[in-house]
Write a protein that binds this DNA or RNA. Structure first.
Length: 518
RNA sequence: GCCAGGGUAGCUCAGUGGUAGAGCAGGAGACUCAUAAGCUCUUGGUCGGCAGUUCAAAUCUGCCCCUUGGUACCA
């Protein structure tokens, strides 16, 4: 008898990136966003399973490999290394990295395709269109010039007929329409669902899912016709199911996915139309939710004033650390909307929030403790109005930020956290421990102890809340203030007096500022 | 064309019916523990435009303008 008392995983995925390309800001953002959600859920106690990966088949990969005189798989291996390197440099906590050329995936795709073929969801038909031999692809009306001619780059264009396999989409159109209407949480942000419903108002055509092998070899063969490979969507989308362990015991623990994190460009039709219908036809449960993010605008186009060279946003990871990068993209992007990337904004956030407010605060605390307390955090002696206000501020921040993070409002959540950091700096000014230290009054001595404790404790709390976004910083600060994070996250976010008696580390510059450009 | 998002202080953005907000940038000041950081005060907006609903609108309705994206077998 099978035991059913397992805990359902929180299964979250990114879209898989196409192997014929280099990592850019958009890839980096999607991984960071997903990782922030994954870390947040993990800290909240969920059993998180997080997968990202690479989409490796298709015509462009085949063409690029051919142009370089290498095998397609060699090109994919390079890309896999490159994208996995990106994950590593961003501190991404994915549990798996799926590649669509892996046997486990080919096997799943074959199984599904055969099932759908057997039950009549896939049929063969002839397709007529304009074909460019040079580009090795069929062209669309929109590919034409304004004068109605085919552009030069396509060379000779001829109208040809080709037999292909098609997947029946339309039979589930009404069902999908109903599903999206009734499941409010299926698409986040909600307004994106309107676009899908709009799309579904018109009758949808069936989806061409194959390419003849004579045109495309680099793909998964159709199990029921060796002359064809499957093309794009069955190959790419089913990665989510493969990675969840379809066909193994793990599958029922992980599936359905809690979130597919995707860009707005692949919502309609792939993830919101093809994917649900494919799953419905295959009799597999639907993912619970699609988390749709916007785009970074003008990425990589900003010029450095001093050198005149283009700044690659990804260079900033190495230059200022992964936490700074993660902070920037999470703080600036309102999930669902677009945001503009610029070096100026980046440096403003880095200098102002990270270096001046947070990093400098830690410096002051460590210096004062080293100077007057031999590096040991004193116990609090009293609680006056200023302390009460500080802790009240924390309670409000803590509650509100968790609420915002639950709703993916990371940008506002981070804003709240840094408002709290500011309040610690304000508290320090009001208490002025550097003045208290010079007083002979015993009450002032009590206040001094209290102040240093309160500053240390509030910094501990603030960086604790930052952990999903800035895990390295959290760890580093914990270590510097002599805090052992042995309890679970929720408990660590509650104020206590355990820091009293801790020995702190030497003064450390968390976020060094770059030399001022002149 | 149609559909959707955005249009709030110089910049980036919060704010869904009740006297316009934050951060950054700019200006002034006091302080000195600190990464010339932090703190206090301050300049700055007829909330894209025009109508309408309402005792009251950035917030609801209509039209228009600008901008981003989608408009399928394209990754």
């Amino acid at each position: 008898m099978r035991r059913i008392n397992f805990m359902k995983s929180f299964y979250i995925t990114t879209a898989i990136d196409y192997a014929n390309g280099k990592p850019h800001l958009g890839h980096a953002y999607e991984k960071v966003l997903t990782d922030v959600v994954a870390r947040f859920r993990r800290l909240m106690g969920d059993d998180v399973y997080f997968v990202t990966g690479l989409d490796e088949h298709g015509q462009k990969v085949q063409q690029s490999a051919k142009a370089r005189g290498i095998e397609p798989i060699e090109l994919c291996d390079e890309a896999a290394e490159s994208f996995q390197g990106l994950c590593k440099s961003l501190n991404i906590t994915n549990d798996d990295f799926i590649r669509t050329t892996e046997d486990r995936h080919k096997s799943v795709v074959s199984t599904i395709l055969q099932k759908l073929f057997d039950q009549g969801d896939i049929y063969k038909a002839e397709y007529t269109g304009y074909y460019s031999r040079r580009a090795e692809q069929f062209l669309q009306e929109k590919d034409k010039n304004e004068d109605g001619e085919w552009p030069e780059i396509f060379g000779e264009v001829e109208e040809i007929a080709e037999s292909n396999y098609f997947f029946k989409l339309s039979r589930h159109q009404d069902w999908l329409n109903d599903h999206i209407k009734t499941n409010e949480s299926f698409i986040f942000p909600r307004f994106r669902a309107k676009q899908v419903l709009e799309f579904l108002k018109e009758p949808i055509n069936d989806l061409c899912i194959s390419r003849p092998k004579e045109r495309l070899e680099w793909g998964i063969p159709l199990p029921f016709d060796a002359d064809y490979v499957t093309y794009v969507w069955f190959d790419a989308l089913f990665n989510y199911v493969t990675a969840a362990g379809f066909g193994t015991d793990e599958f029922e623990k992980r599936w359905p996915a809690d979130f597919h994190v995707i860009g707005k460009d692949i919502l309609v039709p792939p993830h919101a139309v093809y994917w649900p219908i494919m799953l419905k036809a295959a009799e597999i449960e639907l993912p619970k939710s699609l988390l749709v993010h916007g785009w970074w605008l003008k990425s990589g186009e900003k010029m450095s004033k001093s050198t005149g060279t283009v700044v690659d946003p990804l260079d900033l990871i190495e230059q200022f650390g992964s936490d700074a990068f993660r902070y920037f993209v999470t703080r600036e992007m309102n999930v669902g909307q677009d945001s503009e990337f610029s070096l100026e904004r980046y440096m403003a956030r880095y200098n102002s929030d990270l270096a001046n407010d947070l990093g400098n605060l830690l410096s002051r605390v460590l210096t004062m403790l080293a100077r007057g307390f031999e590096g040991v955090i004193p116990a609090p002696q009293l609680e006056e109005t200023l302390e009460e206000a500080l802790w009240k501020g924390w309670d409000e921040t803590h509650a509100k930020v968790l609420e915002l993070f639950e709703e993916f409002q990371f940008h506002t959540g981070l804003e709240r956290i840094f408002l709290f950091v500011s309040s610690i700096n304000r508290y320090a000014e009001q208490r002025a421990p550097w003045k208290l230290a010079k007083s002979e009054d015993p009450l002032d001595k009590q206040r001094l102890d209290t102040t240093l404790f309160a500053m240390s404790e509030s910094v501990r709390l603030a960086v604790g809340l930052l952990e999903p976004v800035m895990p390295e910083t959290t760890e580093k600060v914990y270590s510097l203030i002599g805090y052992d994070p042995d309890s679970e996250w929720k408990a660590r976010l509650v104020r206590n007096e355990k820091l009293a008696g801790s020995t702190v580390g030497a003064k450390t510059i968390l976020f060094p500022k770059p030399p001022v450009e002149t």
